[in-house]
Design a protein around this nucleic acid. Structure first.
Lengths: 224, 224
DNA sequence: GGAATAGTGTCTTTTAGACATTATAAG
DNA sequence: CTTATAATGTCTAAAAGACACTATTCC
């Protein structure tokens, strides 16, 4: 254990990222094969040590870890919770600041070494307490999606209201979400704004395309 | 900076507690006079180093820090967020896991060295980033109080519905909260249960006394 | 009885949800 | 014209908020 000029041994400090995306109607988490011990070769959350000489704070560590995966720009990134303890890491007493990130799947195309794994259920054989961290992230996403526009960060640049509704359905795990009411709430909130163009997908009226408005994350008064 | 057998310097790891209570119609935070450098003699949040040989995890650190202040039992304690960076602590790159705690003011009677300071506004001359941490705690309490029974943890063992309503008023910062509707929501939720006895406070019908039910923290479907 | 707050009931307004109707495209 | 989804409008049920009314106590 590292000695401390303050008189106390210091725990290991790391950041782990729960990067979620949505493929089809399945929410997936990005895992990668660990290069180093412990658990080398096992699938785990992307993460890394805090570099005190390089990172301004934990957010910077998170962005650096994501940046190594080349998915950092325009992404939604928020601190989730901090996991800690003597037992969670075989290297010793550790603190891991877990971050939640959302990204549309297109952003991950062509990046090497990523494994997109469905989270229903969360894979059981993950190292450390990564299963627990992913569960916490899912809880955050699902509860926050009830009253916010968080799921828009899973959408590509342009999307239709019906497509967004479908993403809410998947994230919230509901079988039916009335499109008419959904449209009213989303548009009244100003969470999305129309762009040029429409989606033609068959023998019916084309759907107006929208993009997420500049507002980072809008909150509903009540619920979706 | 402490060396690391993992090859990385480790940040300082501490826990800070935002212990809130309610005196009259004012929300107050517990501060104490720092004994050690840096900022010795200044009022600050109670906190302390993680003791890797002693604490099982950060929650244990938080309870230990609170325990030194003898206010630990039956208290509401939750992790708030983790503050970090190279600049927030003059001793160097640091991570502080901030915890939010709520306690009725009676529980603090007779404890030495506590300073209860009003948070409207938050005192401006606090060391470290303690002002920011307190602001985050207030944000958490206020937003969570909209849809949960969190404010019951500011109540003494027995209280009336009207007294609880008044606490919600203070925490939410609203001028009026209709007692009839409030009573319905709180009782329908089963968040409180009647106990023997009533509060007689004047020339009018006495008020039934209640206590918080065993349910740790109940959530409303919508809002208060 | 008067005054004050506790507690219950009722009315109104708002909101959500279900669903009907119209719009617009392709075949 | 048929069919399918987009988009809007309408109806109904549920909830929230305002407030009237009753209950109970002290003076």
């Amino acid at each position: 254990m590292a000695a401390d000029d303050t008189g106390f041994d210091r725990p290991i400090a790391t950041v782990d990222i729960v990067l979620l995306t949505l493929v089809g109607d399945e929410l997936r988490v990005v895992l990668h094969e660990r290069a180093a011990e412990p658990f080398a070769g096992r699938l785990a959350l992307p993460g890394g040590y805090v570099h005190v000489g390089e990172d301004a704070d934990l957010d910077a560590t998170a962005r650096r870890v994501l940046g190594e995966k080349a998915v950092v720009d325009g992404i939604h990134l928020e601190q989730l919770a901090t996991f800690s303890g003597a037992e969670r890491d075989p290297r010793g007493w550790s603190i891991s600041a877990a971050y939640l990130a959302l990204v549309p799947p297109e952003r991950l195309d062509g990046i090497e070494g990523l494994h997109l794994v469905g989270v229903d259920p969360v894979p059981a054989d993950l190292p450390f307490d990564h299963r627990e961290i992913i569960e916490a992230a899912l809880g955050r996403v699902r509860s926050k999606s009830v009253y916010s526009t968080l799921p828009t960060f899973l959408m590509p640049d342009e999307f239709t209201i019906a497509e967004l509704r479908d993403v809410y359905r998947v994230v919230l795990g509901v079988e039916h979400l009335d499109l008419a009411g959904f449209r009213k709430k989303i548009l009244d909130l100003g969470a999305v704004e129309p762009v040029e163009g429409a989606r033609r997908t068959g023998a019916h009226r084309p759907a107006q395309l929208y993009r997420r408005s500049a507002v980072a994350l809008a909150l509903f008064d009540r619920t979706i």
